Amino acid sequence: MTMAAVSHQTRKTAQRLGLFLASAALLGLVIAFGVGVGELSIPLKTTLLAITNRLGLTDSPLNRIHETVIWDFRLSRALVAACSGAGLAICGAVLQSLLKNALAEPYVLGVSAGASTGAVSVVVLGVGSGAVSLSAGAFTGAFLAFLFVAVLTNGARGGNERTILAGVAASQLFNAITAYTISTSASAQQARDVMFWLLGSFSGVRWPEFQLVLVVVLLGLAVCLYYAKALDAFIFGDDAAASLGIPVGYVRLMLFAVTALMTATIVSMAGSIGFVGLVVPHVMRYFFGPLHRTLLVACAMMGAIFMVLADIVSRTAIAPQSLPVGVVTALVGVPFFAVILYRSRTAA
């Protein structure tokens, strides 16, 4: 490698490191801003002092009501939103590589719909009589949706188009099962609560939910990073990956299971939120390139920022009422989806 090439690579690495640091700082700022937004407006300085007070770094006197609102309601909500956005963005990047499909993400492939069906079955029908948790029910539904799409697309030609069509079919099937379950088994109040939740909402999440989703997303990110080189190889096809000594079937199953687990955990807490896994990976590839070792971390950071901003918009757009956060992400994601679909058609 020449000196010029080494110098170029060093500059590129420095630029990416700078982008990572800037993203981390922006994420912290967005979370702090999100904590201050609401019916009771809290200054950014108060939010930062409340956090540093709790961490033992400062000892500033603060309004007791402000501290209670920050710690008991808003900070946990913002952190769950950040973890959810990170997880969905990671899932989108992984699925796009595994399926070699620019439109792949949990919502489009019907995985979110399957997870919703599993979660609603636990809540409304009481499946398992308490033995099955909400997250376990959502995971079961998500994995069934994966299997449904895999069966429809296995060994078929026209992979990209067929995968999307299978995802549409999975979404319609599981959404129909969910609607039937709610219509026939839920009370009026349950039906209202579940239907709003299904469109995406962080209103009921607290610290226990944050602890769970943080562990799941960090574990999922670690597994995906471990298989980062395999994901790079999958871009060129299964045969290319196998020629490099990658156990294609095992790795594919492992990564599908990890993405299903992350999606299910997020859906069980916040409902079905679409298009985060579609938009964020494409934007991050533009800035960080296709190598998954850096792409996955970048997707996690930007997905977290995007979701916290979407949650802020959902709480302020029609205040004092709230929009489902899934509506906000769809307003951004659907035009992006249309652009990608149009570009793939013209490139064909």
Rank of each mutant, 00 (worst) to 15 (best):
residue 276 V to R: 04
residue 46 T to R: 08
residue 29 L to A: 15
residue 211 Q to H: 11
residue 233 A to H: 11
residue 257 A to K: 03
residue 308 V to W: 02
residue 260 A to Y: 05
residue 184 T to Y: 14
residue 134 L to P: 04
residue 331 L to Y: 08
residue 291 L to H: 15
residue 11 R to F: 01
residue 117 T to F: 13
residue 283 V to L: 15
residue 183 S to C: 02
residue 236 F to G: 00
residue 205 V to L: 05
residue 302 M to I: 13
residue 187 S to D: 11
residue 209 E to I: 04
residue 2 T to M: 00
residue 25 A to N: 09
residue 195 M to V: 14
residue 54 R to H: 14
residue 93 A to R: 02
residue 243 S to I: 04
residue 328 V to I: 15
residue 50 A to M: 07
residue 266 I to Y: 01
residue 14 A to R: 14
residue 12 K to H: 11
residue 306 F to A: 01
residue 58 T to W: 08
residue 89 A to I: 01
residue 25 A to G: 15
residue 240 A to D: 12
residue 8 H to N: 09
residue 229 K to Y: 12
residue 346 T to A: 12
residue 222 A to Q: 09
residue 110 G to K: 09
residue 272 S to C: 15
residue 196 F to E: 00
residue 186 A to P: 02
residue 147 L to A: 12
residue 266 I to F: 03
residue 280 V to T: 03
residue 9 Q to Y: 04
residue 9 Q to A: 15
residue 169 A to D: 05
residue 208 P to R: 08
residue 275 F to M: 07
residue 109 L to D: 07
residue 225 L to N: 06
residue 4 A to L: 14
residue 297 V to E: 06
residue 154 N to G: 04
residue 198 L to H: 11
residue 294 T to D: 15
residue 67 E to R: 01
residue 131 A to W: 13
residue 120 V to N: 00
residue 33 F to D: 09
residue 193 D to G: 14
residue 123 V to R: 07
residue 276 V to T: 10
residue 82 A to K: 00
residue 54 R to I: 06
residue 314 S to P: 12
residue 216 V to M: 07
residue 309 L to A: 15
residue 337 F to P: 01
residue 301 M to L: 15
residue 11 R to A: 10
residue 147 L to K: 00
residue 176 A to F: 02
residue 324 P to L: 10
residue 150 A to F: 12
residue 149 V to L: 03
residue 182 I to R: 03
residue 305 I to N: 03
residue 237 G to C: 05
residue 131 A to T: 12
residue 85 G to H: 05
residue 323 L to G: 06
residue 206 R to S: 11
residue 111 V to P: 02
residue 288 F to L: 09
residue 280 V to Q: 01
residue 50 A to K: 01
residue 213 V to Q: 05
residue 261 L to W: 13
residue 166 A to H: 07
residue 58 T to R: 09
residue 312 I to V: 15
residue 151 V to F: 11
residue 106 P to H: 04
residue 35 V to I: 15
residue 286 Y to R: 14
residue 124 V to G: 08
residue 257 A to M: 08
residue 101 N to H: 02
residue 309 L to C: 14
residue 330 A to L: 06
residue 111 V to Q: 03
residue 178 T to I: 01
residue 348 A to I: 08
residue 258 V to Y: 04
residue 104 A to T: 06
residue 172 Q to R: 04
residue 245 G to Q: 13
residue 344 S to K: 10
residue 254 M to G: 08
residue 172 Q to W: 11
residue 269 M to H: 11
residue 281 P to E: 04
residue 301 M to R: 09
residue 202 F to D: 07
residue 3 M to L: 14
residue 177 I to R: 02
residue 84 S to Q: 04
residue 191 A to M: 12
residue 272 S to N: 14
residue 77 R to S: 01
residue 235 I to N: 01
residue 135 S to L: 04
